[in-house]
Nucleic acid binder design. Structure first.
Lengths: 235, 235
DNA sequence: ACTATCTTACTGACCGGTCAGTTACTACTT
DNA sequence: AAGTAGTAACTGACCGGTCAGTAAGATAGT
């Protein structure tokens, strides 16, 4: 009895947790953004999910847009930086490309990035500043990373002579769209019955076939694709 | 004084045009949806563009959502049916595929289908019934059309032996994403500086290279791609 | 004069952002 | 150890603006 009263008095309605608040709010924001969309997400709901009040959000983030920016920084930008680090570790262009494709696929297969892609493709046009931020910090940087690998591959004769920027863009297109279709929460879950791994192999096969050299393809007498230097047999 | 009144009475501010209003409003909505997206488009602006007042819209459409539905009905299904008709007119698989790609590109390059894609990718998961309708009437029907062409092409030996459904999906992925990036109103207008025609050629080149037979590629002694049977030189 | 058609002015709900006030916690004093 | 002054963290009612939808009245056409 007295213990419960003490407990009651010892358990306040809220606690001061200034170190944890930003992360709590960011995680809640990611959830609510994913469920409701960027424009429709209410700060009220994000606050409730984070276990704080609406006003508290404004103690840590100047506005809704900056909150979204921080979500992007902690997810997409971090992933790209990870990719840049991996590439700098060396390897042949073919190996690097395959590694980048794998990493990219893992990246877009996660629920977080499905949410992010939905927001970017579906709503970001309503927020020009955010669109520019995303274009520079994520899209351009990602394309630069991929096109760099492809350029080295064409120079080394491992890929056919293709515009690296175009080829990088095509890879992003294939990866993003197939990832979206693979997500069961998407509007049109075309591929939710397929295993993620299977879809990746379809994408990789198709993409690498377009990147393969014509002569390389001909050297295969047994009908194996010219992309056989990629370790599909290991998957 | 009386003269001005007479003038006013002789040049009415508006005319009764009950037969024309729905189409006027739909066309205005198409423009505004295309420019602003669905959520940000204001009925006020649509009304102004149609040359009527906001209240008039509600004489012909129960609400904003139904107005958008009507826009979709007049465009998406019609375009697919047009494609089906074209294919039924005959031609070699290669010719049919190229024609379908051209038609599809024109289709997704229009502002209204950019809007449509944004809605489908970004918001449709909140409207399950509408999502199902779109998946069946647009996505599945479109994929069936494309994969049928590709299947006939592989059977005829014009394309390499590829899963027609996978290849059709990849074509949709490349087309849709590049169209989105080409739209200047999109969140990430990666390609708004490029001519639509140039982007289409990049997509077509890349896609058809992946579809080309290895032997076909080798028959080209001068380095021209195996897809040269497509009329790129005419564009 | 009559009515279908259209306009203007309005309502009410919604939500991002603000801020005056409250609470949890800290540190100083005795 | 216990009170007390001070501060950082947090709350939630409120403001201002927006906009879908409504309704009362004006106007064109018959």
């Amino acid at each position: 009895m007295s213990a419960s009263q003490q407990t009651a008095s010892k358990s306040p309605k809220w606690r001061r947790r200034p170190e944890h608040r930003p992360q709590q709010i960011i995680e809640a924001a990611l959830e609510v953004f994913g469920e409701c969309g960027l424009a429709k997400a209410r700060l009220q709901d994000i606050a409730a999910r984070a276990g704080v009040s609406k006003g508290t959000i404004y103690l840590y983030f100047p506005n809704k847009e900056e909150l979204f920016r921080e979500v992007v920084r902690q997810t997409a930008v971090a992933a790209i930086e990870s990719g840049e680090r991996t590439v700098s570790e060396g390897g042949s262009p073919s190996e690097q490309l395959y590694g980048a494709m794998r990493g990219y696929w893992a990246f877009v297969s996660s629920p977080i990035f499905n949410t992010l892609h939905r927001l970017v493709l579906g709503e970001l046009h309503q927020f020009p500043d955010l669109a520019r931020f995303y274009a520079e910090e994520v899209t351009a940087r990602g394309l630069k990373l991929l096109s760099g690998i492809i350029r080295r591959g064409t120079e080394a004769g491992e890929f056919r002579d293709v515009d690296p920027m175009v080829a990088a863009r095509m890879l992003v297109a294939l990866t993003v769209m197939n990832a979206i279709w693979s997500d069961e929460h998407t509007g049109v879950p075309l591929l939710c019955h397929k295993k993620h791994e299977e879809v990746f192999r379809e994408v990789a096969q198709f993409y690498l076939h377009s990147l393969s050299t014509s002569t390389g393809a001909c050297e295969q007498a047994d009908g194996a694709p010219a992309v056989s230097f990629f370790p599909f047999h290991n998957e």
